[in-house]
Computed example of a mutant assay.
Amino acid sequence: MINISSYLAKPLIITAALSVTLVVSGCQKEPDVNKADDSTQTTSTQSTSTQTNETQKTTTANEQHQAPLTILALGDSLTEGLGVDNDANYPAQLEARLKELGYKDVKVVNSGLSGETSTGLVNRLDWVLQTKPNITILTVGANDAIRGIDVATVEANIRTAVKRLQDNGSEVILGGMQIYDNLGSDYVTSFAAIYPRVAKDMNVTLIPFFLDGVGGDPKLNQADAIHPTKEGYTIIVNDNILPILQPEIKKLEENSKAPSTSTPTETTQ
C-alpha cells in the first residue's frame, strides 16, 4: 500500500526548497549598474561646475574694466599738446595706455586750450561738462603765472572749477604746477602753495607736480623749454598720472558694484 503521506511529502519538500531558493535569490540586492555611472556623472558634474566657476572668474576679471569710463583732460597748452602730433599729447597717450591695461571702454577727452587762463577755463565749463566726465584731470594756472595774475584770483578760479566739476558728478584730480623764479620768490612760493591747499580743502586727489621729471629737462622738452615732447608726455603719463589715476578708477568701480542702500528690500511674508 502506497503511503500517501510519504508520497506527497517529497514534492512539498522540493517545492519548499525551490521557494526558499527563489526567496533568497529575490532578497539579494542586484548589482547597481548605475552606481559607477552616477559616480562618474557626479565627478563629471563637479568638474564641469569647477570649470564653469573658473570660467566665470576669468570672465569677471576680463570684464573688470569694461564699464564705460570718460576722463576729461582739462587745461591749457600742456594738456592740448602744443607742438606735438595728435597721438603724442598726454590725453592720447593716456587713453592708449589705459586700453593696454584693460580699460577697453575708456575715452579721454582732450579739452586743453593753448593760452588758457584759469578765468577762461571757468567761463567754458558749461561747454566741457557736456562730456559728462567720470573723472577730470584739471591742470591750469601756468598762463596766469606768466601774466603775473594775482595768486588769490588764480586760486579762486581753481576752486570754482573744482566745485562745478564735483557738483556735476566728476571726480577731480588736480595737477599741481610750479613756475620759474623770474616773478620773485614770494610769488613763486605762493603760487605753488595753491594746489595742495585746494586739494586738501576740497577733498580732491593731487598730482604734486604735473611736470615732475620732465620740466627743465632739455631732452624732454621742445625748443621753447616749456612744452614737453612726445617722450616727455610718456613720462608724465606713466610716472605722474597713472599712479594717481588708477586708484581713483578702482574707487569708481567699487562704488558702482556696491549695493544701493536707498532702495527698500521687499520682504516675502
Rank of each mutant, 00 (worst) to 15 (best):
L121H: 00
T131N: 12
V106M: 03
I236Y: 05
E155V: 08
G112F: 06
K251Q: 09
A96W: 01
T234G: 15
Q51C: 04
S190D: 15
E80F: 13
A36I: 10
P31E: 12
Y7N: 09
T45P: 00
T48M: 05
V106E: 02
N123M: 07
Y187W: 05
I207F: 04
T160G: 00
D38T: 02
S39I: 13
E95Y: 03
G169N: 10
A152W: 07
T45Y: 11
P68H: 01
S44P: 00
D217L: 09
A16S: 15
T263W: 05
T119E: 12
T263A: 09
G213M: 09
E100K: 10
E248T: 14
M177T: 02
A88S: 15
E248G: 02
D239I: 00
N182W: 06
S5G: 12
K230M: 05
Y103N: 00
R97I: 01
L98W: 02
Q178K: 14
G81L: 04
A73L: 07
P196Y: 09
R97T: 15
T131C: 00
S190G: 14
G115D: 03
A92H: 08
G176Y: 06
G83M: 04
T42N: 10
Y195T: 05
S39N: 12
A161L: 04
I2M: 06
S25V: 01
A67G: 00
Q66V: 10
V198R: 09
A152E: 14
T263K: 13
T234A: 15
C27E: 04
D201N: 14
V162A: 03
I236C: 01
K35Q: 13
N157Q: 07
H227Q: 01
S19T: 13
G213W: 13
S77E: 06
K200T: 09
D224Q: 04
P218G: 09
G175F: 07
L18F: 09
V84H: 07
T52N: 14
N89G: 09
S190F: 07
H227D: 01
V24Y: 14
D150M: 05
T153S: 14
E248C: 05
M202Q: 15
P264V: 08
Y195K: 06
Q41G: 00
N134A: 08
T229S: 03
G115R: 06
T261W: 00
V122H: 01
T70K: 10
R159N: 12
V108M: 08
E248W: 01
L183M: 12
L8S: 11
Q269L: 11
I235L: 12
V204Q: 07
G120R: 05
V33L: 13
P259T: 04
P196D: 11
I146A: 13
N143V: 09
T60N: 14
V33M: 11
I158A: 07
S111V: 02
A61D: 11
L174Q: 11
T205E: 12
Q130A: 09
L113T: 13
L174V: 08
S77R: 02
A142V: 08
R159C: 06
T50A: 13
S262R: 01
H227K: 00
A92G: 06
I173M: 08
Q246D: 07
K251C: 02
G115T: 07
T131I: 00
L252C: 03
L211E: 02
K230A: 15
V84R: 08
P196R: 12
N110G: 02
Q246L: 15
I226W: 01
G141F: 04
Q46W: 00
